[in-house]
Simulated assay, not measured.
Amino acid sequence: MPRRLSALFAALLAALLLCASTAQAAPTVVLQAGLGDGQSAWRPVLPALQQHGPVFAYDRPGYGSAASVEGARDPCTIARELHALLQEQHIAPPYLLVGHSIGGLYQYVYARLYPQEVAGMVLLDPTHPEHWASMQQQVPALAAVVRSMNAISLNGATRREFRDQAVCLDQLDQRQPLGMPVRLLVSGISETGATPAFRTMLDQLRKDWLRLSGAPQLQVVAESGHYLQKDAPEVVVQAVKALRATLQP
């Protein structure tokens, strides 16, 4: 084969191999922590997750080393900020979104705003869109305690995210479940101070997550409290790993 044709063939082969490698690459796992938490909340699971593909964790504005920002801190704003950050970091979709607590709500909103970018989602004790409204209606005494505790929080970002947690949700079309694979994991150990009325409310909202997300089932992690990634890291890693495996060609 002439040298020129041989070089051209080699270049074409390299391009084909690169395309094949890119097509088969695992989606990037994007981690979103809960209220008051930065990326350090993922330390118990981060090394294991990184063994199976790319992972992105970050601090929202006002947490960790990230500077605070002015303006609204509602779920839509935070989802759009994450979208812009992923673009700035040249982290291309598809993404496997993982969210804990209110971070689960933020990831759910991201999937509603950018469904074409999301391959799947793992939600860990996610905050339901109606969580705060339901608390105020069904367990007002406990809601008053939570409101007072948040008011004296030293972290301004925490106060503002709590205040704005439901601000934009009425703008989203939530009539149909998400059109992507979703794993829904919830804690089996109740938090200290949880009353029977609160547990009843929480059970109702957890079941409604099945409707919102389209998850096939609710996986109760019996040995875990609210921080599933700390109390049962192997369960969280396995859920992400299993879902990620189904998303690869």
Score class of each variant (00 low, 15 high):
Ile91Met: 12
Arg206Thr: 02
His100Ile: 05
Pro129Ile: 11
Arg211Phe: 06
Ser134Met: 03
Leu124Trp: 00
Gln176Trp: 13
Val145Trp: 10
Leu185Val: 08
Arg160Met: 14
Leu202Glu: 03
Asn150Lys: 08
Pro196Gly: 13
Glu88Trp: 08
Met135Cys: 07
Gln87His: 12
Ile152Asp: 07
Pro126His: 04
Leu123Gly: 00
Ala133Cys: 07
Arg206Phe: 02
Leu178Gly: 10
Pro93Val: 07
Tyr108Ser: 04
Pro177Asn: 10
Ser187Pro: 00
Tyr114Ser: 03
His100Arg: 07
His131Gln: 08
Ala119His: 01
Met180Trp: 04
Thr195Gln: 08
Gln137Tyr: 06
Met180Arg: 09
Gly179Thr: 10
Arg163Gly: 11
Ala143Glu: 06
Gly103His: 02
Asp170Trp: 07
Arg206Asp: 06
Arg211His: 15
Met135Gly: 04
Gln87Gly: 09
Arg160Asn: 11
Pro181Leu: 12
His128Gln: 10
Gln204Glu: 12
Pro94Phe: 13
Gly99Trp: 08
Asp208Arg: 10
Ser153Cys: 09
Pro93Cys: 08
Asp125Cys: 08
Gln204Cys: 06
Trp209Phe: 15
Asp164Val: 13
Arg112His: 15
Gln87Val: 03
Leu210Trp: 02
Val98Lys: 01
Leu210Gly: 02
His90Cys: 12
Ile152Ser: 14
Pro129Arg: 10
Ala194Gln: 03
Gln171Asp: 12
Tyr95His: 04
Arg147His: 12
Gln138Ala: 14
Arg175His: 14
Ala151Asn: 11
Pro115Arg: 14
Met121Trp: 05
His131Asn: 05
Pro93Arg: 04
Gln107Val: 05
Leu97Phe: 14
Val122Trp: 05
Ser101Ala: 09
Gln138Gly: 10
Gly104Ser: 10
Pro181Gly: 06
Gly193Pro: 01
Thr192Met: 06
Ala166Asp: 15
Tyr95Ser: 04
Leu97Tyr: 08
Thr200Asn: 11
Thr200Arg: 12
Ile102Val: 13
Ala119Val: 09
Val109Asp: 03
Glu117Trp: 08
Ala194Asn: 03
Met149Arg: 13
Met180Ala: 12
Leu185Met: 15
Tyr114Pro: 00
Ala141Glu: 12
Ile91Gln: 06
Arg175Glu: 13
Leu105Arg: 02
Ser190Phe: 02
Arg211Asp: 13
Leu185Phe: 10
Val98Asn: 01
Gln137Ser: 15
Val182Asp: 00
Arg163Glu: 14
Val186Phe: 06
His131Glu: 08
Asp170Lys: 13
Val146Gly: 01
Gly179Phe: 07
Arg159Asp: 06
Gln87Cys: 05
Pro115Gly: 09
Arg206Ala: 04
Leu205Pro: 00
Asn155Glu: 05
Pro93Gly: 05
Ala144Arg: 15
Lys207Met: 11
Met180Pro: 00
His90Val: 10
Gln176Ser: 14
Arg160Cys: 11
Thr192Trp: 00
Tyr108Trp: 15
Tyr108Gln: 05
Arg160Glu: 12
Gly99Pro: 00
Val118His: 00
Tyr114Gly: 01
Leu210Asn: 02
Ala197Asp: 13
Gly156Ala: 07
Gly179Leu: 10
Tyr110Lys: 09
Gly99Thr: 06
Leu113Val: 02
Arg199Pro: 05
Val146Trp: 07
Arg160Ser: 14
Arg160Leu: 15
Leu184Val: 05
Met180Glu: 03
Leu184Trp: 03
Pro181Lys: 07
